[in-house]
Amino acid sequence: MSSIHCEIYGQGRPLVMLHGWAMHSGIWREFARQLAERRQVICLDLPGHGRSAPIANFEMPAIVEALLAAIPLPSFDLLGWSLGATVAIDMAAVCPDRVRCLTLLAGNPRFVREPGWPGVKPEVLDSFAELLGNDAKQTLQRFLGLQVQGLPHAKAVLQQLKQSVAECDAPDFAALQGGLRILKLHDARDKLAALKLPIRVIQGDKDTLVPVATAAALRYLQPALQIQVLSGAGHTPFLSHPQALVDILLGDG
C-alpha cells in the first residue's frame, strides 16, 4: 500500500494535482470537484504533508519516486502549484512517457531571484528557515499571509486558506525544512527546457512569491509554452479566481 495520500474525483482524462509547501490536498478540494465535472482529478499529498507518511529524506529524487509510485495510471496530465510545480517538472523529466502535458500554476523552476531571473529574494526563504526552528506555527501563518498579499479581498481568501490548511496537522519538521531547501537551492530550468511535451504556465499578476515576470523568462527556456496571466490574482488563484482557472483547465476538452 502506498504511503502517499490520494484523493480521486470524477471521471475522464486524468489530471494529477500537487500542492505547495506546508500545504495538503484539502486546500483545493472544492476546486478539484469543479474540475471533476469533466476530468478525473487525482490530488496527492506530498510526503510528510497532510495524510501522507514522511520519507527518510525530503529530497527531490525521493519525492518524485514516491509520488510516481502512488499514481495508479500509466499516463496523466500533471498540474503543480508553487513547490508542487517544481516537483512536477522533475516528475515530467523522470517519466516523460507518463506525463502527457504539464501545467505550472504559480510555479517556477528556479524559485529564488538571481541576476537575469525573477523570483523571491533568497533572504525571504532564509528568514522562514530561521523562524521555523523557533516557532513553526508563526512561520506557517506568515507564509499564508504572503500568499494573499496585495489582493483586494485578501482577508476572505486568507480565511478560506487557513480553514483548509487547519484540516490536517502541520507537516513534520523535516519535510518543512526539506521543502524550504528545495525552494532555495533547486534549479529545474535545464530540465524544463529539455521537455518535449505541451507545457502551460498560469500566473497571477499580483503574485508576490512568483513574479509575473517569470512567465517571460520561461519563454526563453521553452518558446512553445503557453502562458496565461490572471488579472488580479495572487499566489492562490484556485481560491481567488476559481472559475477563470477552471475555464482555462477545462478548455483542453
Rank of each mutant, 00 (worst) to 15 (best):
C43G: 09
L250T: 11
V165W: 14
A215V: 13
S25I: 05
F58K: 05
S164C: 14
A154R: 00
L250D: 12
G251W: 07
C95M: 13
L78N: 10
R189H: 09
L192M: 08
P72S: 11
L239N: 06
R110K: 15
L239A: 09
G116N: 03
R100V: 14
S127F: 11
W81Q: 05
L67W: 04
Q160P: 01
K155P: 00
V41N: 03
R33K: 13
D90A: 13
K196T: 14
Q163W: 11
L140S: 00
L225E: 06
T139K: 01
Q160I: 00
G116D: 02
T208N: 11
R98F: 06
R100L: 14
R39G: 02
T214L: 11
D169S: 15
I4H: 01
A69M: 10
T103S: 08
A174D: 10
A170C: 12
N108Q: 07
W21N: 05
L239C: 10
L183R: 02
P122I: 03
I55H: 01
V157N: 02
V212F: 09
K191R: 14
L218I: 07
F111S: 05
K121I: 14
G119F: 03
E123L: 08
N57R: 13
D45M: 06
P171K: 04
P109R: 09
I227L: 15
L105M: 03
V246P: 00
K206I: 11
A85E: 04
P74F: 09
E7L: 12
A93M: 05
Q34L: 14
L209R: 04
G10C: 01
L46A: 03
N57S: 12
R219W: 10
D190C: 11
L15W: 04
L209N: 01
F238R: 07
L146K: 00
A32V: 03
I199R: 07
